[in-house]
Each structure stands twice: as C-alpha cells, then as structure tokens.
C-alpha cells in the first residue's frame, strides 16, 4: 500500500489495523468494540476517565436537573422495591422500609412467534440466547433505598422452548416471565407486587411496573455474548400505601457465563 500515514498506536497494536488512514479512519477485520465507538466518561467525583461508568453510555444517566429538584428537602422521597438476586425463580427484594420482603410476580405468557417453514430470526436469536448470564445492574436514577451508583450483581438464566421452528424465551432469576424479541432487542416486562412498607402503617400490596430493554452484542463468530440495556421500575399505585412513587432506573449489562 502506498502512503505512510500510520498512527503511532497502530504500530503498537500490531493487530490488523491498516496503515494508510484518510481522515484518521481505522480499518480492521473485526467489528469495533463499544469502547471504540463510545466516548470515555469521567467519574462523577473526580473527573477522571476510566471511572465506574467507563464509557459514555447514554442510558446510564438521567437529567441532573430533575435530580436536583428531587433532592430538595420538601420533596417526600419514598423507597421502592427492586429486583435482587434470584434463584429458581424466587425473587427477593428489599422493602421500602428497613425490613425485607418477598416479592411475587404475575407471570406473563411467553412470547409466541408466528410459525414459518423456516425458523424466524427472532426464534433463532431466542435459541442462541439460551444461557446463564451474569448481570451487573447500576442504578442511574435512584431513591432513598437505592442511591445512584448502587451496583447489584446477580445471575439470569434465559431458557428457550422450541416447537418445530417456533421458539419462545423465558427469563429465570428475573421474575420468570416471558421475553419479547424484536430484531436484536429483548424486552422483558413484569408486574411484581410488594407489601406496603412497615413504616407506613398500612397493610396491603402494591404492584410495581418493571420494564427492561436489552440489546444484543455478538462475538465475531456470531454468538451473542453480551446484552446491555436499561431497567425502569415504578409503583404507580404507591398511594395505596400512603407513600410516594419514586421510580428508579438502572443500566444493566448481562455477560454470558455458561
């Protein structure tokens, strides 16, 4: 190749980067990774790169203005129960108060994919996603129970059931509900219930709305190895417990472990 526009670190990498680079373009034989596309993000306390977030993932923050408003003392803040570690479909969550409580879920029917003579891309993806994933959940919009930056680790198992060419997927360890696959996107919705906080003096249960959207990242050989996305949880009927709905949001990264 004629021309000698070689970026210094291209030499350092020595791993398949082409040499002549118009407009600083970099050519490779493998798809770039997230970190090559997303800008580095400063850590919130000291402004250094390589902090907790690492990269500028848009869905890992919310507008500060809303938070600043929310932090004002006259705003009542109430907690909200959110997912914790689950094994064999039993999900435990912390309650609005200090004590913990068991959360039950209302099961949603699994996704149904229209039968075709060949397997649809959604069914193929559902099949290839069946595995155990380690999940790292980071709260990006918190409340008094789950401050921003809280990180939780747990496992999720995606199981697939296929009949002929139609496959459906369920998530175990996360409410054990059906997942909806559309293109490369996996959506999981659940409506878990939780008891009123002890401090409220009210007995009863309220229903939370859990919404998770994941996008699939494939390895070079096409195997889905990572899913990244967001989780939003709110309690629209919190008033039943004499408390306030203070939704939380978090980013989540699922990495295939088995």
């Amino acid at each position: 190749m004629a021309g000698g526009a070689v970026r210094a670190h291209d030499h350092a990498w020595g791993n398949g980067v082409s040499r002549a680079t118009p407009f600083d373009a970099v050519v490779s034989t493998a798809p770039p990774r997230r970190r090559d596309v997303l800008a580095p993000e400063r850590d919130v306390s000291r402004g250094r790169y390589g902090g907790e977030r690492g990269r500028d993932a848009k869905r890992t923050h919310h507008d500060d203005r809303r938070r600043l408003r929310r932090f004002r003392p006259w705003h009542a803040v109430a907690g909200l129960a959110v997912v914790a570690v689950g094994t064999a479909g039993v999900v435990v969550a912390s309650s609005r108060g200090s004590s913990s409580a068991v959360v039950t879920t209302s099961s949603a029917p699994p996704t149904t994919v229209t039968p075709t003579t060949t397997m649809s891309p959604e069914s193929q993806l559902a099949k290839s996603l069946a595995a155990t994933y380690h999940a790292v959940q980071t709260f990006t919009d918190g409340n008094s129970n789950f401050p921003v930056g809280t990180v939780r680790n747990f496992d999720i198992i995606f199981t697939t059931a296929c009949v002929d060419t139609v496959c459906t997927m369920r998530s175990k360890g996360l409410y054990d509900v059906g997942a909806v696959i559309s293109g490369e996107q996996v959506t999981i919705d659940a409506t878990p219930t939780e008891p009123c906080p002890v401090a409220s003096g009210v007995t009863g249960q309220i229903t939370d709305i859990f919404h998770m959207v994941l996008r699939v990242t494939h390895t070079q050989n096409g195997t889905p190895d990572q899913l990244t996305g967001i989780i939003a949880v709110s309690s629209p009927d919190a008033a039943k417990c004499n408390t306030t709905n203070d939704p939380v949001a978090s980013s989540i990264v699922l990495t295939r472990v088995a």
Binding site: A25, V27, D36
Partner: peptide, 28 residues
Amino acid sequence: TWHALVLRAERGADVRWIRVPGEHVDDF
C-alpha cells in the same frame, strides 16, 4: 455517535470495518 462512526465495508464475502473519528465523519 458523537465520538465515532463505524462503517461495514463489504466486497463479496470479504468484510472490513472502518471507524472514523467523529470530527472527520462529514469529510470522510
């Protein structure tokens, strides 16, 4: 993204990935 643009270049079955820094995307 603001940071970079990634193009998939195909010639037949051969594939290359081109990453262009954000500030040069329009020129590229």
